[in-house]
Each structure stands twice: as structure tokens, then as C-alpha cells.
């Protein structure tokens, strides 16, 4: 019943849109994961922000945002977007690379312009454009920064996210830099699942195991929160630096205010790139243009000096 209303509603909308704005009409579907942690929470917020801003600015544009809790659900949503909403452009943050390549290719085969965000598909011919954060810089910048702060000597422990290609890219980039600093020992790297509680537990055990730690690469701002709490609890003073990642609101604020001397820097990997991707795609399509095949939204080192421009108090992330 509900879906029927939606179909009729979409039909009416499409009809009215046709009569009033006969030309240059773009129906853009946005498929993203549901908000399950800070980062995806930010993705959802920025996607809805883009819908609000862009639909206001361009009357001929309609944006439909769908969030999925799993890869199969996202694949189903693609079908719905195509057949029910009759989209002609798609921005997708794939839940998984491999299992969504075929469904996206099908959508593209129906003439829809496809922009893939963040996670590349296994077959790049299934996409028209690729917009992504810079995962290499996400690992490289903290490595360089920490190496400098430790003067090329010391012990580092690190946390990883979940076993994904994205995590591997960051990890490899970090370790690549560390190869050039033989006096820095990376003691261990365990998964903290991008979540505060698991990071807390893993850090507690690191602290039990290693008597001298100079820096922690938490690899995520949520995980950094858990790391700091665990260090506080153990009352350990040997850790001089904790480096998170992604530039979450709270972390950027800490840097801005100089609240915690262990937190001096962060690396940007803002969920805002979904906003950028939607904006770029929508505006290009409204003009009938194409995007460059690959757009990398650069990751930047955030320090006290430039923190202000990365602080978005309204975003949940």
C-alpha cells in the first residue's frame, strides 16, 4: 500500500515536473549505507544536506536518498530507484565493492549516469565517474607526522578498522612510510572495528603488554576516544601522541581548543565528500556535461592552524 502511494506520488511529481520544467530535468538517486557509526552518520547527514541545498538551487532537480543496512538491500534499492523512481543519474557509496558491481553495471546499462563514491567497484567500466577520499594520504600523513614528532625513534601501536580494502590501503601507506624510519618500532596492529568500545579494550591490553609506548595511531576519531579513555584509566604518561583520523567534529574541536596535548593533529577524510560528489554530479548533469573519470578529494593534515575550516558544528560527525 505504502509503495503504491509512493509510485503514484512519484508519478504525479514526475508529471508536474514534466509540464513545468520540460527541459533539463535530472532525477538523481543517492544510495548510501545506513548510519551505524559516526562516519556513516556523517554520510547520511551530508547527503540529506546536499538534497536540501541543491533542490532549492535547481528547480529541475530531484534527489532521492536511500540508505541500506546490507549489500543485498542496497542492490534492491537500485532496482527500485530505476524502475519506480525512474532516475537518470546515480551517486552510490557501495556497501561492498564486489557484490555491488553487477547491480550498478545493470543500472548504467539502462542509460543512467553513475558516480561511485569512496569504494571503487571491481569493474570500473560499470561507473562513469569515481569520487573518493584519499586513503593513501589517510595513512601516509599520520605516519609522516608521527615520525617527525618522535624524531624518527620510538614505539608505536596502531589500531585498524575492519578487514576491508580501504583499511588495507591506509595500513599499507602507513607502513610504507615507517619503512624509512627503522628506529620506529610498530609493536602491533589489531582491529578495533572503528568503534569506541573495542578500541578501549584493545588499548587496555596494549597497555598491559607494552611498558613503553610513545604514540598510538588510532586510525579513526571514534577509536581515538576509546584509546584516550583507556590511557587515562591506566594513568600512563609515556604516550605522547594519539592520532585519530577522518576529522570528526569533536576531535577537530579538541585540536582547535588545545584541550588535550596528546591530540595535536588529525587527517581529514570528511564524509562531506558525498556532498561534493552529489553536487558535482547534479550540476554536471543539469548542464549535460560529464565528470572526470576520477576525482580524489584530498586528505589534508589538520593542525591547530587550519582546524577552523574543518569544523562543522551542525554535522553530527
Amino acid at each position: 500500500m505504502k509503495s503504491l502511494i509512493r509510485v503514484v506520488g512519484a508519478g504525479v511529481l514526475a508529471l508536474s515536473a514534466c509540464t513545468i520544467f520540460a527541459a533539463e530535468k535530472v532525477t538523481l538517486g543517492v544510495a548510501i549505507p545506513t548510519a551505524t557509526h559516526g562516519f556513516t552518520g556523517g554520510i547520511v547527514w551530508w547527503a540529506n544536506q546536499a538534497k536540501k541545498d541543491l533542490e532549492k538551487a535547481h528547480p529541475g532537480l530531484k534527489i532521492i536518498v536511500k540508505t541500506a543496512g546490507s549489500a543485498p538491500e542496497q542492490a534492491n534499492q537500485l532496482q527500485d530507484l530505476l524502475t519506480v523512481n525512474k532516475i537518470n543519474a546515480l551517486v552510490i557509496f557501495p556497501f561492498e565493492s564486489a557484490s555491488l558491481t553487477k547491480p550498478v553495471a545493470q543500472v548504467k546499462g539502462k542509460g543512467v549516469y553513475v558516480t561511485v563514491v569512496d569504494r571503487g567497484l571491481t569493474d570500473t567500466s560499470a561507473q562513469d565517474a569515481y569520487v573518493a577520499g584519499d586513503n593513501t594520504a589517510f595513512g601516509k600523513l599520520p605516519a609522516e607526522y608521527l615520525a617527525k614528532r618522535l624524531n624518527g625513534k620510538g614505539n608505536i601501536v596502531m589500531l585498524r578498522g575492519m578487514p576491508t580494502t580501504l583499511d588495507n590501503e591506509r595500513y599499507n601507506a602507513f607502513m610504507g612510510v615507517m619503512k624509512q624510519h627503522p628506529d620506529i618500532k610498530v609493536l602491533d596492529a589489531k582491529y578495533g572495528n572503528w568503534n569506541r568500545d573495542d578500541a578501549f579494550k584493545v588499548t587496555q591490553d596494549y597497555l598491559t603488554r607494552f611498558k613503553q609506548i610513545d604514540a598510538v595511531w588510532a586510525a579513526d576519531d571514534d577509536m581515538a576516544v576509546g584509546v584516550l579513555k583507556a590511557i587515562d584509566q591506566a594513568k600512563r604518561t609515556d604516550i605522547k601522541e594519539v592520532f585519530g583520523g577522518a576529522g570528526a567534529k569533536g576531535m577537530v574541536k579538541t585540536i582547535l581548543d588545545g584541550k588535550d596535548k596528546r591530540i595535536q593533529a588529525d587527517v581529514s577524510y570528511s564524509p562531506k565528500f558525498i556532498y561534493d560528489a552529489i553536487k558535482l554530479t547534479a550540476e554536471a548533469r543539469l548542464k549535460g556535461e560529464k565528470l572526470p573519470a576520477t576525482t580524489i578529494i584530498p586528505s589534508v593534515l589538520i593542525t591547530k592552524e587550519n582546524a577552523k575550516q574543518f569544523y562543522f558544528p551542525d554535522s553530527p560527525f
Binding site: 556523517g42 569506541r196 553530527p316 560527525f317
Partner: peptide, 11 residues
């Protein structure tokens, strides 16, 4: 909870 927290964290 996710709705209360806007997908982020409540602190």
C-alpha cells in the same frame, strides 16, 4: 538511538 544521535554519538 541512531535517530536521537543523528547517526553520530551522544556525549
Amino acid at each position: 538511538l541512531t535517530w536521537f544521535a543523528d547517526g553520530g554519538a551522544l556525549t
